[in-house]
Every structure is written in structure tokens, then in C-alpha cells.
Design a protein around this nucleic acid. Structure first.
Lengths: 363, 363
DNA sequence: GGACGTGATCGAATCGATTCGACCGCCAGG
DNA sequence: CCTGGCGGTCGAATCGATTCGATCACGTCC
């Protein structure tokens, strides 16, 4: 005698229990019909599936499943800043694409979390403290991420840092950027350049811009920027001038280019910490009537495709952007399995010679 | 006499029950101490909070809360394509930024979902069928979204479409783009132009590129493209040539520009469906030694900031991108409250005259 | 002094699934 | 003929919180 317990009121979404009742099996068997995690007769499975379809049941409610499993299947991705700002640079976008392409097939979703909003009075997004996620990936680790790291640590959520300072207890995905810059610089030296200038990423959260004197150069807070500056020295070169920018954007490159190329002792080559900056420098050179590379050589970093720079093609240090994202995704997935320890990865870079470098002018 | 039921094994994360036991209150009271949804003595709340802190309890487990509430607090955002491709156009990024900026303060998170991967054999992301989300926002509604819409509908997840064909049962956030293109075209007509060409967004999922003849023009499958083409006709203009592109990217604009500007009867003005395309056309003109706007005028659409195009500043139809995102977020949040009906919104656009339009050459 | 309203707290049901151990036939091997 | 093993199914506990209704103490008003 069937007790009428669950009358699927038309307005209500059916649950696994409804399906089980309608198919005449127990809830546990119905569950097996969907998860496939256990022995079940093919006929039973089909019957349950069919009843489910008839009832308009579209599969197990993720919320129930997640609670039971203790896993949300969600990877939080903390982007360094307001999205608008982070993603004006295609670099982050490509990394993000790599992350999703790795995580998607594993059934893991990406929850987008804006990083600390302000620098003077950092406010971390409430999602960091309360959203369901099994592991977090932090992009562009430069920013005031200590707050974020702390908050995630408290929740004992494992962390993967993309580009950041190595620290115990979390995984860092980095690239051999110092060595890349060294190679690029040596390429310039090999061509005969001696007056080499640099255009850098921000030194720290204050994000000022302008020529950096020695004192300022001693106060580079962000690791990434310091590493890339170090690469120039590794090639045995001391830059004749260093221009610090407030963000890796074309307009800041142009600003830097104008300043550097108007110096009395004009540099014959400029090493830039990003392709966007380098592109901006090339535009500044054009604007000043200088030929690239005859009058000035320019190298970038990242290996982006800049169609608007044509016919010039940047000489640049290409980093494997999508692979960096995939590596981060892989590492995140790995940290998900119980007891796995964080591990760091360093990916290689490669110098790609384009049309923007050549021998220095005869002078 | 306290029964020793819950011994918080050091390895285990504490639960609300642990906190309640330690603080000597019931679970329900402990819950109140965190949610604040009910009367509770200030002293009790403090005590519970303090014990929680001592135990390292960082707040209610989102999974439990979500199941009970029947809400995940997650908004799925389906981007039209692989992220890499979608986000090469800053348009989507700005819209996404608008969405998060609206949703964040409401405590809602954004789950990033790649759209259908391929056109020939569309595969929709499994997340669409199984991820926890309360409502979905679909960006760039052109693509093979019927599959996605169907899948979401089956799960009875409300949908907000950004830029798409209006249809019953879902909300559409659109802009007055047809009217905007009309204004831009009339601006050109007012300047004296008669030979006006067009560079369009893709006609449909096949994404071919090249000159479109009349037959092809009768087969514009994507609504967005059709509307923008319609705007030209609304101004009483029949384009002397229409060049269809395969994506809204600079390089495709350049390709189109080269083709159009090499025609025997060169158009004196070119209306483009996006700023990236327009920027590409300007580059093509420069490459061919043509002056903008003396030899050819160019108008775009979107209102982006293109620092690499300087000193030229595009004449363009500016759309409120971030506001479009915020409107989508608002609408998504609205659909979350029980019984709210979908509603559509159309945002205004405005013609912004830059330096790329002027009177046609004398001839 | 008794009834009543109110603020604080508690118990228990509930959300929707997964999963462990028990159970039940049935077949094969000894 | 008995037993062991196994495929298939089921019941019940469990994940961690929210929330409804009940309870209780206390102060106030008539």
C-alpha cells in the first residue's frame, strides 16, 4: 500500500526521491542510476532514467551532492584587481583561458573573484570569505594579496599563486622571466648596443610613474618587477635610464617612450617588461619620427600578438601564457585530492626575434 | 551532564554544532549569532563569536547554507565562446566587469562558463547542465545558444540574455544600436558623403569573410548584425559595398579596409560595426597612404578607448558597456526573487564625434 | 495578583543527495 | 546438499546549516 507522501506538486521541482518513488525503487538505487558509482542492473538504470525524463528531473541537485561530498567542484580565481583593469591586458585573459580549458574537462567550475579593490584601504571581496570553493587560484600575485592569502588560509582552502613570491604552504606557478630578460638583453648587447634603457612594470602598490633614480630602484616591492630588472643586470648591463610605469598598458608605454627618447643621450635600445608597454614605446618612436629598429631597438615581454603594431613585429620574450593557466589549473586539481602537498612549477620562456631590434645607429 | 558526542578531532574542521557545544548554546542560537536573522542577546552573540574564533571556525559552511536555502548565490555567466576569443574584444570584458560590480555587493558570485565550443558540432559545457547556479546570464547571444537556452530552461534556471533576440520567457538587455548606426550614418550623409561602405560583424555561425553580395545580405542569421545593417538603411543609405568579417578584431578590420579602399570606386566613408574593426580600417588606410579623414572617413561602434590609434580618435557610437553589465546583473538579481517576471531593457547609445570623420574629398 | 506580551533560547524537521553496511536470491563449487 | 561468493537492491545515517513553532522567564499593565 503506497503511502502518498510525495505528491510532486506541479510547481515543485522533482527530487531524486520523487523519481525513485515513481520508478518503484529505493532512493539509493535511483542515486546509483545517475552516479554509476556502484553495481546496478542495466534494466533498472534505464527505467529510472526514463522515469526521470518523464518527470522532468534533470539530474541530481548539485547542492545536495556538494554538501554530501563535501566538495563544491568550484575553483575560485582571484584576479588582481577590478576585472576591467586586469583584463585590459590580454595576458591575464590568456591565462584565464588556460585555467578554464584545464578545469572544464575535470568538471570543475571557475568562480571569478575580484581582488582587493583599493590600495590605500584594501577591501577584500566578501566572496573570499564566504563563497563555496575547494581551492583558489590567485592571478598576478603582486597586489596586496596577503590579506587574501590569510583569509583563504583561515578557511584552509589550498592556494595556487600564479606569478608571485614563493612561500611555504602554497603552490606557485612561475616562469623563467629573469632568464628571459637576460637573454633579450644579451641579444641587444650582441647587436652592439651599449646605451640600453628599461621600461618597467609597477614597483609596488603605490603605482607611481616616471624615471626611477637609484634610491627608488632600491625599493622595488613587487617581486615580478624586481626579477625582470635583475635580468638586465644578469646580462652585465646597467640601464642608462629606468622608467617606471603605473600599469602594463599601451598608453603608459607611449608615455615612457616619449620620455626616454627625448633624453639628451638617447638610448639606442629599450627593454620593456611587457609587450603592451613595448608597443607603446614603438608608437612613441614613430610619433617622434624615429625609425625602429634603425634609430632605436625595442624588446618586449609576453609574446602577444599585436595586430595594430604592424608592419612592426615585436622582438619579445615569449612566455607560454595558456600553458601557465593550464599548469595552474592542473595544480589546483591536484591539491584537491586529499593529502597532496603544494608544489611549485617554473615554465620556460623563449626569445622571439621580430623586426624591432637591430644594430644601433652609427652615431 | 554533557554527553561527549562531538570531539572536534584536530584534523576536522569545526562545524556550527561544535561551536554551539563549546559555547554552551543550542545550534539554532549559534546560527542566529552568525546570520543575525532573529532576536538574540548581544552578550550571547559575542560569546558565540568568540568561541568560534577560538575554535578556528570561520563562518557557516556555504554548502550547508546553500542546500537549506535552496539558493547557491551563484550566477552563471555564459560567454559566447572560448574565453581567449571572447575577451580579445574589450567589449565583453567591460560588460563582465559591470556584471560583477553589480553582483558583488549583493553577495552573488560569478561562475564563468564557456559557451558552445564548436560550430559544426556544438558541444555545450557540462557545467551548464550540472553546476549550481540560481540564474544565468548569456553574453553575446549570437552563437548557437539555443542549445544552452534549452538546457537551462530544462533546469528551470532563469536566463538573462545580453544582446540577443527577444523571446518570451527570458530577459534581454539590449542597446539602441540600430538607431545609433542610423545616427552615425546620418552624420556622414550630413558631411556630404554618398559613397558609404560597411564593415560588419559576422553574419552567422559560419563566420566567413569577404564582400557580401545581395544574396548573402539576405541571409544574415545573427540578429545583432542584421540590426546594425538595418541602421544604415534607416538613414536612407544603401552601402556601395559590404564587407563581412569573421570576428570583431583589429586584423579583420585591416583586411576589410584593404579590400574596400582598393575598390575602383573607392568609398569616401566606412561604417564599421565595432571599434576594433574601425581601428583596423584606419590602419589599412594609413598603410595605403590615405589620410583620415581627408581621403576617407571612418566610424566605429562601441566607444572604446584605443590608445594605439592615436593621434586619431575614432568617431563612434558609444554604448554604455559597464552599465549594460550592471543592468544584466540587476536583472539577474531581480529574477532571483520568487515570482518576478522576466523583463527586457534597452539602453541608449550616443554618437561621439572624433577625428576620423570629415567632409568627403573634393573630386 | 494574575494575565499578557515580548525577548531570548531551544528542539526538531528539513533541504537533496551519497554511501556504508545489511540483506536477499541465485549460481557454482566442493 | 550445503556453503561461499557475488550482483543487485534497500534502509538509514550523514553532510552542515536554517527556520518554524514551542517554551520559558520576566516585566508591565490593569
Amino acid at each position: 500500500m503506497p503511502t502518498i507522501e510525495r505528491v510532486p506538486v506541479s510547481q515543485q521541482r522533482p527530487t531524486l526521491a520523487d523519481v525513485a518513488a515513481a520508478a518503484g525503487v529505493s532512493v539509493s538505487t535511483a542515486s546509483l542510476a545517475f552516479s554509476g558509482a556502484g553495481p546496478i542492473a542495466a534494466a533498472t538504470r534505464e527505467r529510472v532514467r526514463q522515469t526521470a525524463a518523464d518527470l522532468g528531473y534533470t539530474g541530481p541537485n548539485p547542492l545536495g551532492r556538494q554538501l554530501r561530498r563535501g566538495r563544491s567542484g568550484i575553483v575560485g580565481v582571484v584576479v588582481g584587481d577590478a576585472l576591467r583593469r586586469s583584463f585590459r591586458d590580454p595576458v591575464s585573459v590568456q591565462v584565464l583561458d588556460g585555467i578554464t580549458s584545464e578545469l572544464g574537462p575535470l568538471g570543475l567550475g571557475v568562480l571569478l573573484i575580484p581582488g582587493p579593490l583599493d590600495v590605500a584601504e584594501p577591501v577584500i571581496d566578501p566572496l573570499i570569505g564566504s563563497a563555496a570553493m575547494d581551492v583558489a587560484i590567485m592571478l598576478w600575485g603582486g597586489t596586496v594579496n596577503d590579506l587574501v592569502v590569510d583569509a583563504l588560509r583561515r578557511r584552509s582552502i589550498p592556494i595556487v599563486l600564479v606569478e608571485g613570491r614563493r612561500q611555504p604552504g602554497l603552490s606557485v606557478i612561475g616562469i623563467a622571466d629573469r632568464d628571459g630578460i637576460r637573454q633579450a638583453t644579451e641579444h641587444l648587447v650582441g647587436l652592439g648596443h651599449t646605451r640600453i634603457a628599461a621600461v618597467t612594470l609597477p614597483f609596488g602598490p603605490d603605482r607611481t610613474s616616471g624615471f626611477a633614480d637609484d634610491e627608488r630602484l632600491g625599493d622595488v616591492r613587487w617581486d615580478l618587477t624586481r626579477r625582470r630588472l635583475g635580468g638586465i643586470h644578469d646580462a652585465g648591463v646597467t640601464p642608462v635610464a629606468v622608467y617606471e610605469t603605473s600599469a602594463s598598458l599601451v598608453e603608459h608605454g607611449t608615455e615612457a617612450g616619449r620620455a626616454l627618447l627625448s633624453l639628451p643621450e638617447r638610448p639606442t635600445a629599450i627593454v620593456c617588461h611587457s609587450d603592451l608597454l613595448a608597443g607603446g614605446v614603438v608608437l612613441a618612436a614613430r610619433e617622434l619620427g624615429l625609425r625602429v629598429p634603425q634609430d632605436v631597438s625595442v624588446v618586449g615581454f609576453d609574446g602577444l600578438d599585436l595586430p595594430w603594431l604592424l608592419p612592426d613585429v615585436l622582438t619579445t620574450v615569449a612566455q607560454p601564457l595558456a600553458e601557465k593557466g593550464r599548469a595552474a589549473g592542473r595544480e589546483a586539481a591536484r591539491l584537491l585530492v586529499e593529502g597532496e602537498e603544494p608544489a611549485s612549477v617554473e615554465l620556460p620562456v623563449s626569445l622571439v626575434v621580430g623586426t624591432t631590434t637591430g644594430p644601433p645607429p652609427a652615431s
